[in-house]
């Protein structure tokens, strides 16, 4: 859990998790070692809803007309292997979570997010099996939510 940011360990055996950094302080012969949470890289880029703070989820507050081609938004809800993040992580309401789940599935079937895929994936939509290698698009109005 603790990342070695005191510049001693440069080679990682496992993938580094930059969740906390170790801060070492020395005051009056007392050495304090503290694990501090690192600032999230997303914090500065967060979008503020127009009408200030509200209780609704982040997507409801923004009132976006999300399409399955908006991969820059949809990829925020997806892990690096293409799996959808759970609701407790995304913080969406049930309705929006379901909608984003379907939009992500549409984008993946259209081959628009080939770099977010399992490690064994060929990552080339043209190399997929049979009918899956051809271009397809979806109509968002067919979604039940």
């Amino acid at each position: 859990m603790l990342s070695a940011l005191n510049q001693t360990r440069h080679i990682h055996v496992s993938s580094p998790v930059s969740l906390k950094e170790i801060v070492v302080k020395e005051e009056d012969n007392i050495i304090t070692v503290e694990g501090k949470y690192i600032k999230s890289p997303r914090e500065a880029l967060l979008v503020k809803p127009e009408h200030g703070e509200c209780n609704s989820c982040s997507l409801c507050a923004l009132n976006l007309n999300l399409k399955h081609t908006d991969v820059l938004v949809l990829s925020q809800f997806v892990r690096s292997d293409g799996c959808m993040l759970p609701k407790r992580v995304t913080g969406l309401c049930a309705r929006q979570q379901k909608r984003v789940k379907w939009l992500v599935a549409m984008a993946q079937k259209s081959g628009l997010m080939p770099n977010l895929a399992p490690s064994w994936s060929k990552r080339d939509p043209k190399a997929r099996y049979r009918s899956k290698k051809y271009n397809r698009y979806f109509d968002e109005s067919t979604l039940p939510v």
């Binding site: 997303r42 880029l45 979008v47 982040s58 820059l72 995304t90 628009l112 080939p114 770099n115």
Partner: peptide, 30 residues
């Protein structure tokens, strides 16, 4: 319109794009 694939955007474009939500404090990014 011809849709643009995620891997055809530059790394900077993807990282600098406005974000909708922030991960929980103790969430380990995969």
């Amino acid at each position: 319109p011809i849709p643009k694939r995620l891997d055809h955007y530059t790394r900077e474009e993807v990282e600098k794009f406005p974000k909708v939500f922030d991960w929980p404090k103790d969430y380990i990014i995969k």
